[in-house]
Amino acid sequence: MLLETVNLTKKFGGLTAVDDVSFSVEKGKINAIIGPNGAGKSTFFNLVSGYYPPTSGQVFFKGEEITRLPSNKIARLGIARTFQTTNLFERATVLDNIIVGNRLRTQSNLWDAILRTPRLKREEQKCLDKAYEVLDFVNLTNHAHSVVENLTQEEKKRVAFALALATEPELVFLDEPAAGVNPDETEGLAELMKKMVDHGITVCLIEHKMQMIMSIAENIMVLNFGKKIAEGTPEDIMNDEEVIKAYLGGERHAEVK
């Protein structure tokens, strides 16, 4: 158990986007969160990654409480994330986007910059090496000098992965990594996630593509209207009545696919 939430709740005014959710991310596995649109999945990510504080409840990482830590500190502990909409710097090259990803593992400060100290030079080299390493990992080395806005959607997703990996995380949260990507490419991204796990990085993703989830995830949580309605292996989930109801539409959810 790498990360654990206890009774996590987030209210936006009258709306409870995440409602009393207790969930554990299992180490060394691909974990997934599914649920209809607006179920609170992204909000859940935002809570565990410190993007905003929960209304109540707690988050633990490796047994240590991280509930109200700011997101930059959480990143330093080894949790990385991607956003639902990739917000890379479109007008810069892939490499320029990635290099700063390892900044959190460096020490050099303003004085190092002004005085051009050996430490700065060493760390700059380290960031560059790291950038090439993660680009190699996601198979984008040949695009290192391409400008991001000229890449395909799938390539951008890979860049976002690479940036997350450059922070040297133990756990990555991926928000809809395969959205807007065609089936063949989805396959490739799924492979990439498996590769991360093989390299000792735990993955937790949000996805709407059921087929993909069912084939790669080992531990799934289902959210609906902010509440956890099921948790378990793909088989458990596929046979869960409440999940079927939420997805296939009881009376209230008819409009959700």
Binding site: P70, V100, L104, A166
Partner: peptide, 17 residues
């Protein structure tokens, strides 16, 4: 520059904005 491009992204990659 990371902060200029996206403060949220900068934070999630561990930068103290």
């Amino acid at each position: 520059m990371a902060i200029r491009n996206s403060e949220d992204l900068a934070k999630t990659i561990g930068i103290s904005t």
